[in-house]
Design a protein around this nucleic acid. Structure first.
Length: 821
RNA sequence: GCCGAGGUGGCGAAAUGGUAUACGCAAGGGCCUUAAGAGCCCUCGAGCGCAAGUUCAUGCGGGUUCGAGUCCCGCCCUCGGCACCA
């Protein structure tokens, strides 16, 4: 048998060039075929190039894309580059090379990689988030958000790295430390742009019912949004005009309130009301609390606090309770103030014990001296005494003790970054207009209070994009501002309203901005009038299948759904959800079973597989490596295994004389394989699709003469989505090039008759234990009488049945269970 | 603490409630070869048995069922995420 001749290197190069010339994978904006929009998360073009993790997602979805094309779909399978980001900026700081230069080089490299892997992307639709023609629309979306009052500036806590002298986004802080240098971060407050994603929280939550996200992905989103029902209560002290809003999920415990605790950040609102004797102490405590690092603050240590000497009235029973400032109360959770119910909340309990505050039990069920957080019958609760918790909650709200309300875990999206390499936020600030109270926002109620953003004006839409200027130095300024702030010429501009002097916003957008809408741009990537043509959007949306990493489930996925809904409200996009289906792939670990990292030296470069074994081997291995959604470790011996498989395929199909006719069994096997591969690709069971091909090949190897040219051709067509290069070469040789590309062939049809016939093994068991087997024609194996009578002839079955009475459980074509009674 | 995913041979794993261990890897034996490599063939969960067979085995303990890796109840362990969420 000849095994020479399988030379992936040359073959793959040859077909790559041919496919490119033919434009085989271009999606057409036409409507006569059903459309299928398949999306992978576009990569960040880093200096490390694309890794085996990218390959996993891309190769697997590529197989689906190829199969669907063969099935007659008009498939959109695009790629682009999420190219803003810190690595390029850091590299620029080190070397002085402009990030745009680095980015262009990296994109060039990654493009070569992706092409070499035989991915059937439509390269005419490539997008790049750092292209001004792209970020023009990212900025445009921001302007619309601003106009609708959904983008606002607020003083919020930021993570300050004292060593690098920059602000860090939350995702850059790992375990309370700077991601880059490991220094513990400090908290500072700074004015930052925020997007009011919380306004969309309910819709982001409720609309999950309308899409097909894998269950755990949907659940993560639900938990991340974290909507909880409860009530808002007001604790007041009329004498000094003090009002404290409190949110609780347990209004049924309100009779047990023995204090109210307020977050340090909120104390400044009424610090002047604090009695003289206490004031210095409160101020000192607040100052100390605010100075603590994020990590210190969040450590669940001793619950400290300070008594303000103020009191407020419990709306339930009119009792005066003391007001404390305590740093276990977080400013951004609920209302920044809690009603202290030590008997029924663990934290309040610890606090009360330490501070010597009274503990009043109002829900029965706990042990004395211990906190009881469960529900139960109310005690000590006025007219509500005797009710169950749930009932009491309803009654209390109905009686107006508190107002029905809810809280979310989701926070507004901090949208400012003090970096260079990001989209400039297209806003201008005019001090004069700010003083005059000139505001563009009419609907601007943000976080419960009116903020008209006076003096802040968006750059006129005709002046978009606000291009990122060339700077000399990428170094952070040390003041917490972005490097853009040092560019006086760029910063100083005219106020679009009064024409006077004004300043540009120098913050840039976070990485998540460009990736929040890129799937829309693929639909119409070169349009310079609108972000995408409405008719094309109507044709292609929603994305039919979006696959990406589990790590993007809460941030990216939620952000892009938010923007999409906003664009839907504007009438820009025709669907309320961007993605009809969302799946995730598992991480690939190094051969040592640990996370791949340069420092561990366990990084696998996919290009090495291509060089040594060819792209088809890489693709096949990425599919075969394990269940698609599971974490798996790389294994070079497994790579060799799939390569061996490909060589055997080549040997059987090309290295032998093929007969003209195939046996019925060969036809049956091939028909079954087609169905299996088709189903498995759609169900993301890529590993078993490959296994089925191997199994069929093993049979083929044992029955070489039974497989004729017709079935080999069918095999090749089935293999085309998975190993496109080899399939193309074999198809070319089988057909003499007369039928064009294998990738333009129709996906095989199978009629039910092709699947029938043949033999099956029926298991014969007695009392549930297998005691024998029968080889039967498929049809006969379905006849109970026949199978049972043959079963009773088996010696081993006779042994166990003997003369005893039995009952028959019959599963046609599979098994008989004889149950002795 | 909360949420999620998982636990099956020496390893990666497969299995609409119906023959557990498909497929691949590793290992052992053989063929081919001057040799190496590649390739080909055979064996391969554990125990007992010459064999036919048979017992045990899907993290642990119960249950439902003619029949459970799969369903139910109660635990243990590993990995991911979140976390003083009021």
């Amino acid at each position: 048998m000849a095994f020479l001749g399988y030379a992936p290197g040359e073959t793959e190069k040859k077909w790559l060039a041919v496919w490119q010339k033919q434009g085989l994978y271009r999606a057409k904006d036409e409507t006569d075929k059903p459309k299928s929009y398949l999306l992978i998360e576009f990569p960040y073009p880093s200096g490390e190039r694309l890794h085996v993790g990218h390959a996993r997602s891309y190769c697997c979805l590529d197989a689906v894309a190829r199969k669907r094309r063969m099935q007659g779909y008009n498939v959109l399978f695009p790629i682009g580059w999420d190219a803003f980001g810190l690595p390029a900026e850091n590299y620029a700081i080190k070397t002085g090379i402009h990030p745009a230069v680095t980015t262009a080089t990296n994109i060039g490299n990654a493009r070569v990689q992706a092409m070499a892997w035989g991915l059937s992307f439509d390269w005419e639709r490539e997008v790049n988030t750092t292209d001004p023609g792209y970020y023009k629309w990212t900025q445009w979306i921001f302007v619309q958000l601003f106009r609708k009052g959904l983008a606002y500036k607020a003083e919020i806590a930021v993570n300050w790295c004292p060593k690098d002298k920059i602000n860090l986004a939350n995702e850059e802080v790992i375990d309370g430390k700077c991601e880059r240098c490991g220094t513990e971060t400090e908290r500072r407050t700074q004015s930052q742009w925020l997007l009011a994603i919380t306004k969309y929280a309910d819709r982001l939550l409720d609309d999950l019912k309308t899409v097909n996200f894998r269950e755990d992905i949907a659940l993560s989103q639900i938990n991340w949004i974290g909507r909880k029902a409860g009530a808002k209560l007001v604790f007041t002290n009329d004498a000094i005009d003090l009002r404290l809003d409190v949110f609780t999920t347990r209004i049924d415990t309100v009779f047990g309130v023995t204090f109210v605790a307020v977050a340090p950040e909120a104390a400044s609102n009424w610090i002047e009301k604090v009695p003289k004797a206490k004031k210095a102490g409160v101020e000192a405590y607040v100052a100390e609390a605010l100075n603590k690092s994020e990590r210190e603050r969040k450590q669940k240590t001793e619950k400290t606090g300070v008594d303000t000497g103020l009191t407020v009235k419990n709306p339930a029973n009119g009792q005066e309770v003391p007001v404390w400032v305590a740093d276990y109360v977080m400013m951004d959770v609920g209302t920044g103030a809690v009603m202290g119910v030590p008997a029924h909340d663990g934290r309040d309990f610890q606090f009360a014990k330490r501070q010597g505050l009274p503990i009043v039990e109002v829900v029965a069920g706990g042990k004395s001296g211990e906190v009881y957080e469960g529900e139960g019958r109310l005690v000590n609760s006025g007219k509500y005494t005797g009710m169950e918790s749930g009932e009491a909650r309803e009654k209390m709200v109905a009686d107006g003790l508190g107002e029905k309300s809810q809280t979310y875990h989701l926070r507004d999206w901090v949208f400012s970054r003090q970096h260079y390499w990001g989209e400039p936020i297209p806003m201008v600030f005019c001090e004069k207009c700010a003083k005059d109270g000139i505001s563009l926002i009419k609907e601007g109620e943000v976080n419960g209070e009116f903020k008209g953003m006076a003096g802040w004006f968006p750059v006129s839409e005709s002046d978009l994009p606000v291009k990122l200027p060339q700077v000399e130095k990428y170094q952070p300024t040390g003041t917490g501002e972005s490097p853009l702030a040092a560019m006086t010429e760029w910063v100083n501009t005219k106020c679009p309203v009064c024409g006077g002097p004004a300043r540009r916003e120098t913050d840039t957008m976070p990485n998540w901005a460009g990736s929040s809408w890129y799937y829309l741009r693929y639909i119409d990537p070169h349009n310079d009038r609108v972000l995408a043509d409405p008719a094309k959007l109507r044709y292609w949306l929603p994305v039919d299948w979006y696959n990406g990493g589990m790590e993007h489930t809460t941030l990216h996925l939620l952000y892009s759904r938010f923007w999409h809904k906003f664009l839907f409200d504007l009438g820009v996009v025709p669907t309320s959800e961007p993605y009809a289906k969302r799946t995730s792939h598992g991480v690939i670990l190094g051969p040592d079973g640990r996370k791949m990292s340069k420092s561990r030296g366990n990084v696998i470069n996919p290009d090495e597989v291509v060089t040594k074994f060819g792209a088809d081997t890489l693709r096949l291995y990425e599919m075969f490596i394990g269940p698609f959604d599971q974490t798996v470790a790389w294994n070079w011996e497994g790579v060799e295994g799939v390569h061996r498989f490909l060589k055997r395929v080549w040997g059987l199909a090309i290295g032998c004389q093929l007969s003209a006719m195939s046996s019925p069994e060969a036809k049956r096997r091939m028909a079954k394989l087609k169905v299996k591969v088709e189903e498995d690709l759609e169900a993301m069971k890529f590993n078993t699709a490959v296994a089925a091909m191997m199994e069929t090949l093993n049979w083929w190897g044992e029955h070489e003469t039974e497989v004729g040219k017709d079935m080999v051709t069918m095999w090749v067509v089935i293999m085309a989505p998975i190993a496109p290069f080899m399939a193309e070469e074999m198809f070319f040789r089988l057909t003499g090039g007369k039928m064009g590309s294998v990738h333009e062939q129709k996906w095989p049809e199978v009629n039910p008759a092709d699947l029938g016939g043949g033999k099956v093994t029926v298991a014969i068991s007695v009392n549930g234990k297998v005691r024998g087997k029968l080889e039967l024609e498929t049809g006969r194996a379905k006849e109970q009488g026949l199978v049972v009578s043959q079963a009773l002839e088996l010696e081993n079955v006779k042994k166990y049945i003997g003369e005893k009475q039995y009952r028959v459980v019959f599963v046609p074509g599979r098994l008989v269970n004889l149950v002795v009674v």
